[in-house]
């Protein structure tokens, strides 16, 4: 991810989907925090879904940035969930003794969505086979 590249933040109902991919530079990581926090306030989001499935490496700095993001987002009333961490990255962090304390971490983006109360419901329409995402009530 080059320095000039902007942060991707996709609005998803009242959540923000933030996919990270490739090499995440320190500059990009810092920009991410600023951007996400601004968007939480502007768009009144209550959830931040950070998907890590495309990230090449997570090191101590990126972990501290994610922890900082989650902490600040929480103060603004938004919950942060990390998804898609590849096993080799989890193993590396574990070996290094790096804990992502205070951040919910789930396997898949689907799990992250359901952690935000968003679940899939299948249209009961006999033949259509259409699927849609629906927001669970209450």
């Amino acid at each position: 991810m080059s320095m000039g590249e902007s942060v991707t933040c996709i609005p998803l109902w009242d959540c923000l989907l933030v996919p990270l991919h490739g090499d995440v530079s320190d500059v990009h990581a810092d920009a991410l925090v600023t951007e996400v926090l601004e968007r939480i306030q502007r768009d009144e989001c209550f959830g931040v879904l950070v998907d890590l499935s495309g990230v090449w490496t997570l090191d101590s700095y990126l972990c501290s940035v994610l922890a900082r993001l989650a902490q600040a987002a929480r103060l603004m009333g938004a919950k942060t969930v990390l998804s898609g961490m590849r096993p080799e990255i989890a193993m590396t962090l574990e070996a290094m003794g790096i804990e992502l304390r205070g951040i919910e971490t789930v396997a898949t983006l689907e799990d992250a969505l359901s952690s935000m109360g968003i679940t899939r419901t299948r249209e009961s329409n006999k033949s259509s086979g259409l699927e849609r995402l629906g927001e669970r009530e209450g």
Partner: peptide
């Protein structure tokens, strides 16, 4: 930082 860089490496 987290102070895990060198010990982690």
């Amino acid at each position: 930082g987290l102070g895990r860089g060198l010990i982690g490496c």
